[in-house]
Design a protein around this nucleic acid. Structure first.
Lengths: 99, 99
DNA sequence: CCGATAGTTCGATGATTGTCGAACAATTTG
DNA sequence: CAAATTGTTCGACAATCATCGAACTATCGG
């Protein structure tokens, strides 16, 4: 059971979060995650035309920036926004990114 | 009298704005501009340790992204946030970036 | 155990980026 | 006009980045 570490919100820097969403695909992912739900990482479901490995790369950058967490259930990995923490640390940011 | 063109706000894309602020120096510049005033571009006043040409480069990216405008008065160039337009197009974004 | 499924990790590669110094342009001042 | 001031532009360079395919790990179903 692999563990996917996320940074403590105290260590999350705004400029790193911005760097994470400063990419069309990653911004789109965050837009989909705006509903707060955990979404399976299955490539087909995201409507973007890149390979598995590229998607995995984007998911990793989002996670390491502090924006998301990964939930593992068996073979299925789900990704979810860390909304509550983000709203506390960067008020209005997620809203502004996902309107 | 050189003219520094800025994109119409209709043509400004969120991901380009994010790309512009996804750099420590440029985010810092935007933070200084948060007061809404026009600031002279004079390097010494920004508290960052880069050359004139690098600053000029950053100012250009901010302007082309749609975040700022440049006001020319003689030898002095001033930079200013396009706050009203930005707040209308991306509600809460500038606030979240400069809180 | 075996094959299929779901993702990650690992090079490699081509494109983009931040930085600098030098040259250039425009304006003010002596 | 000449020199100084303020900033832009250009070329170069090293570092970073998005992307891919291949190999790998882990889980589920038969």
């Amino acid at each position: 059971m692999t563990d996917y570490p996320i940074p403590a919100m105290d260590d999350v820097e705004l400029v790193e979060v911005l760097r994470a969403v400063a990419d069309p695909i990653r911004l789109h992912i965050v837009g989909v995650l705006a509903d707060g739900e955990a979404h399976p990482k299955t490539v087909d479901d995201w409507g973007v035309d890149v390979t598995k490995s590229t998607m995995s790369h984007h998911f990793k950058i989002l996670r390491e920036s502090g924006l998301t967490r990964t939930l593992v259930e068996g073979r299925t990995h789900c990704i979810q926004l860390r909304r509550v923490e983000l709203d506390e640390k960067f008020p209005g940011l997620v809203d502004a990114l996902t309107r």
